[in-house]
Nucleic acid binder design. Structure first.
Lengths: 336, 336
DNA sequence: CTGAAAGCGCTTACAG
DNA sequence: CTGAAAGCGCTTACAG
């Protein structure tokens, strides 16, 4: 079924001009409702398919948004960013845009090579998922199409970022522990590894401060080196009554470690995580954690991106999206 | 940094025509090497960016391939298809194509609505990941751009599909068990649920046949209903010495069930899986399984797609890609 | 409300 | 080896 019907063809069938057809099909002013209806019907009957490329060429808009993910976040089970990407592509679709995924290879990241879709003007803007090298960011800043970071921020001025409120999430979760009678609360995570781990720590710390619980250095526990490589975790000599872990995977590890040492979770010790990923549910008991609000994040970033693409030069700075606590079975109410 | 340099601009700078510039930049015949070099340098110096949309309009090729995944495969931890998609987008990129992901919503699938990217001629072909409703396939068959299925096939004539060799994988894995002395081997999976489960069963069965091991009906065990909903698995009264599971998740479940009943894996009973997904490695012991050859699959499907897009009307039928066995710790060598 | 003209930035024959 | 002309299918002023 070959199909090369153009607006011109429709126009000829109806004895009008292609300008009128264009206006009708785009629901613009200047065509009577009656004619509009007739044109649309004819288009349908003739199996007309709109040609975005022609419009794109004319209006200098591809109606595509590039989505960049660094290859290293792409590994086997790190499905968080791909989940984000899926949601992004759904949301973009509702706005008549398409998302084009670009996996940024280590080599290109290092050599500061921009994606081919940039060089070919195939995208109107870039959404960058997750962390990316500083140098690369600087190159991106210089290009002439808008960029927004998602789930990552850096101190570069003038770049907008939509991120989870890690701080507030950990704060709320720690508050929840305190409300359940916990006073000896440890935090697990290397504060120098990523800014999320750091921010989550600060939220935890704020909760301690508010409740006048002193921060105990023995209760800030390393889980990885500064490059993110997991290390063997050592439980503190005197066990706290609860662990706030910087992610579910670590919470899962801690729980297994506690169980291996003969403790029951949550009867002897409570544990909370962050992310609500698969580790939160394969664990026994299932882990109370914070879930990133993916829909809110993607809706927000797409909204801002499209405004920018349409010419707005408003800046948004760091936009924080609140997560939500998922209550499960890894916390026990105790007597203070 | 506004940038609207066109071939015309380069041509003017150099006092040649834009035709020559076009030929030089595309490495076509008919320009002296010397001039070609000069033009390329000038293009770089002027910060020229190629405009694919103009080429697309002219040659009626978008250089995009649509990738369709049904929404139901998109759930939380089903990252297999998104992994495939990532790999696809990398491979497409090396061929100067881009992949545009389209999540097919349940409603659109039911109402037989084709993706917007089809109606807007934004893609030159479709790769369909995973299963999709029969009716929808029929609609897809009628459109005028090529389609290829990946990791799914159906009995529709004339549609090409690149799929894992489920049959052969299970056959090899069962052979491996037999070689290790196992004779009482059960298969876990509902044969009516999906064609993968069925094909894997048949591979298992072929191995039994070859080794003259009778098929025992008590050793074909249901793990889900026909809609794919998991059910509580019942271990057979007389325990086999090994279980061939249709996927790692079920292998994981079986292992936990065995352990809960006081059996040790693999000392008392061996278990193998399929897929090499996260369940294979979070399990204790880690599971011997079959890994889909993602690179081989994606390379193949992209190669075929691009041939079709370029005008070839060759058909490929069902193309089987062999998986590879990942040996881990869930199988014990026993004395027959 | 309707349409003629120009142009978006390329490529494709074709002629020299 | 080089280039003038036509055209891909739209949209955007502008004129009527």
């Amino acid at each position: 079924m070959k199909n090369n019907v153009t607006m011109q063809d429709i126009a000829e069938q109806l004895g009008v001009s292609k300008v009128t057809v264009s206006k009708a099909l785009n629901d613009k002013e200047g065509v009577s409702d009656e004619l509009k209806e007739k044109i649309k019907n004819m288009a349908r009957d003739m199996g007309y398919r709109y040609n975005v490329m022609a419009r794109s060429l004319k209006v200098s808009h591809s109606f595509n948004i590039g989505v960049i993910i660094a290859e290293r976040f792409t590994g086997e089970y790190k499905s968080f960013y791909t989940g984000l990407y899926q949601q992004l592509s759904k949301v973009l679709d509702t706005q008549q845009y398409s998302g084009i995924l670009h996996i940024l290879s280590k080599e290109d990241e290092k050599a500061l090579n921009l994606p081919r879709i940039y060089h070919e003007r195939k995208v109107d803007g870039f959404i960058i998922l997750g962390q990316i090298h500083k140098k690369y960011i600087e190159v991106l800043q210089k290009i002439d199409i808008p960029i927004i970071f998602l789930d990552f921020y850096d101190d570069h001025v003038g770049i907008d970022a939509v991120i989870t409120d890690n701080f507030y999430g950990a704060y709320e979760l720690t508050n929840y522990l305190v409300m359940n009678g916990h006073q000896q609360i440890a935090y697990v995570g290397n504060l120098q590894a990523t800014s999320s781990i750091q921010d989550r720590f600060l939220g935890y710390y704020k909760s301690l401060l508010e409740h006048r619980i002193p921060l105990n250095n023995d209760y800030v526990i390393n889980d990885r080196d500064e490059n993110g490589k997991f290390i063997d975790i050592e439980l503190p000599a005197k066990l706290p009554s609860a662990f706030v872990c910087n992610c579910d995977q670590i919470a899962y590890t801690i729980i297994n470690k506690l169980k291996a040492s003969g403790y029951r979770v949550p009867e002897d010790c409570s544990v909370v995580g962050f992310d609500n990923d698969i580790y939160a549910t394969i664990s026994e008991p299932k882990i109370t954690t914070v879930e990133v609000n993916v829909e809110d994040m993607t809706n927000t970033v797409v909204k801002y991106m499209i405004e920018k693409v349409k010419g707005s030069d408003k800046t948004y700075g760091r936009v924080l999206i609140k997560g939500k606590i998922i209550y499960r079975d890894s916390v026990k109410k105790i007597n203070a």
